[in-house]
Simulated scan of single mutants.
Amino acid sequence: MGVLKRIEELAVDTERMTLYREGVERPVKVDLAKVFGAMSDRHVEIMRDDLSQVYCDATGDDVEYVYGDSITSISG
């Protein structure tokens, strides 16, 4: 689709995550760079709204988007 460059430009650089668990005094600290590095060398983290905008921009002339609606049934 030709969107990778734009996605990489919008990538966020989250390095750490801290998890607080009910009933546990010490939080768990996670080094996300190590986690993502172990999974893939092509990992890109991007905010959901940014990703949606990238795809809307890439497909806007060819796709009709309908917001605030949902599918209730499908029949064949």
Rank of each mutant, 00 (worst) to 15 (best):
Q53F: 02
F36C: 01
M1C: 09
L32C: 03
Y65I: 05
L51M: 03
D50V: 03
T14A: 14
E25V: 07
R26K: 15
R16F: 14
R21A: 06
D49K: 09
E9N: 14
S40F: 03
S73C: 11
D57S: 05
T72I: 11
M47D: 12
V30N: 05
S40H: 06
S40L: 04
T14S: 13
V66S: 10
D49S: 10
K29M: 14
G23K: 05
R26M: 13
E8C: 08
M47I: 09
V35G: 02
A58M: 04
A33N: 11
G37C: 01
V54M: 00
S52Q: 13
A33M: 08
E8K: 13
V30I: 15
Y67E: 10
G2E: 14
L32P: 00
A33P: 01
D13P: 02
E22R: 15
D62G: 11
V28Y: 08
A33T: 09
S52P: 02
E45L: 11
G68K: 02
D50Y: 04
E9D: 15
L10R: 02
R26S: 14
G68N: 06
T18P: 01
Y65V: 06
S73W: 11
M17A: 14
T18H: 10
A11D: 07
T59N: 09
V66G: 03
P27I: 11
T14W: 15
E25P: 03
G60D: 13
I71F: 07
T14Q: 15
M1E: 11
S73N: 14
A58S: 08
G76S: 13
I74L: 05
G23N: 06
V66F: 09
E9V: 07
C56Y: 14
E64I: 06
I74W: 02
S75A: 11
V44W: 04
V35Y: 04
L51H: 00
I46N: 02
L51S: 01
I46D: 01
R42E: 06
G60Y: 12
Y65M: 06
Y55K: 00
V63D: 09
V54Q: 00
V54R: 00
L4D: 14
C56H: 12
A33C: 07
L19G: 07
L19I: 15
E9L: 09
V44D: 04
D61K: 14
K5Q: 15
M47A: 11
D61W: 07
E15R: 10
F36A: 01
A58C: 07
K5G: 13
S73R: 12
L51G: 00
C56V: 13
